[in-house]
């Protein structure tokens, strides 16, 4: 299964993966609107602890604990084999957050309900937005 490989030795801590992620997951697909108006949450998070930095996102576990913990089947495996959230049904109980061994699920909002925000590996793209945006190949899309 192809996944985003995190090459921490190449990460320059530029946050461009986050910007690309926000844009890709916005309604407008416009970088400035996505950040300034839509307040989209990034699915990846860049961490820094000198000299380490890396962008961390869902690793799409084979036996994903988040899927087991989900109270109404919102967290599921899609036809590509990736772990994704059904945004229409998620109620934001944060049980997936409670069990995610990588700590990569964020707390978002969807109307009145909470919404678990996590990497969906950009279903509308052949290469995830973060990988494409990374200027230094710190994120690459390959078999893991």
């Amino acid at each position: 299964m192809k996944l985003v490989k995190i090459n921490e030795d190449n990460c320059v801590y530029c946050h461009l993966c986050e910007v690309a992620c926000k844009t890709e997951h916005s309604v407008s697909k416009d970088i400035i609107k996505a950040v300034k108006k839509e307040n989209v949450l990034s699915r990846c998070t860049v961490e820094f602890n000198y000299p380490y930095s890396a962008s961390i996102m869902c690793r799409h576990c084979d036996d994903a604990p988040c899927i087991f913990a989900c109270q109404n089947g919102s967290m599921h495996r899609d036809e590509r084999g990736y772990v994704v959230v059904n945004t229409q049904t998620c109620v934001g109980c944060w049980m997936c957050i409670m069990v995610c061994p990588y700590g990569v699920i964020k707390q978002g909002k969807n109307d009145d309900w909470g919404l678990s925000i996590k990497c969906d590996l950009c279903p509308d793209r052949s290469i995830p937005a973060c990988v494409e945006a990374c200027p230094n190949e710190a994120l690459t899309f390959e078999e893991l």
């Binding site: 995190i6 961490e47 602890n49 930095s53 890396a54 961390i56 604990p65 990588y102």
Partner: peptide, 23 residues
């Protein structure tokens, strides 16, 4: 409050994030 992978040992972190170590 910013606890995360950044506090882990590099070798361990890389193995985990590359899914080379089972959960």
């Amino acid at each position: 409050n910013d606890f995360g992978w950044k506090y882990f040992d590099k070798a361990f972190r890389v193995l985990r994030l590359d899914r080379k170590l089972q959960r």
